Simulated scan of single mutants.
Amino acid sequence: MAEPNSIADIDRVIADALRRRAELMGERTPLEVKIDQIEAACRSRGFAVSADGYVNQAAAADLLGVARLTLRNRRLYRGSTIAWRSSGRSVEYQITSIAEELLSREKGGK
């Protein structure tokens, strides 16, 4: 394996190692399982995922099953519960937050 060259790469390596340890010990939380499912869905659909776990607005909307404009309007007018950041003129959403949103829907939330 190549040497990690940034803090985000190191964080990803550590997270992967902890995830493997948890799998071996049988300690996976529902959130960790959902994050893995989302990352697998991103790979299968060809969505780029940043080293620190963010996807663009189109990918986030697809994963959440809503239109891009709906996602944008929630962020601008309703105070989105999904963590996001500006990246130039685009917006990126955190996979962990997307997973939390999907889990809350499964539990009978929004």
Rank of each mutant, 00 (worst) to 15 (best):
G53Y: 00
R85A: 06
A59L: 04
T70P: 02
R105H: 14
L102N: 05
D52K: 00
A61Q: 02
Y77I: 06
T70K: 12
S50Y: 00
A2Q: 11
E106D: 12
A67C: 05
L102Y: 07
A8H: 04
L64I: 10
E92V: 01
R74N: 14
L31A: 10
Y77H: 14
A15N: 11
L24A: 11
R20Q: 14
L64V: 12
R105V: 13
A48Q: 01
D11M: 05
G88E: 08
D52A: 01
M25I: 13
G79F: 14
W84V: 00
R12N: 11
V49R: 01
R19H: 10
D36I: 02
R105M: 13
A99V: 07
R105W: 12
A59Y: 00
A15L: 12
I10E: 08
A61N: 02
R19A: 10
L64M: 15
T29F: 03
I35S: 05
L71A: 10
M25R: 15
E101Y: 15
R75S: 06
D62K: 13
G65R: 10
I14H: 09
S6H: 03
L76V: 07
R75K: 11
A17S: 12
M25Y: 06
L63D: 05
Y77L: 11
I95L: 15
D36Q: 10
A99H: 05
E106W: 13
I7W: 02
I10F: 04
L103V: 12
L71R: 08
I14M: 13
R20G: 04
E101G: 05
E100M: 15
I98C: 11
K107P: 00
A2M: 11
R68E: 14
Q57S: 13
R12S: 11
G53I: 00
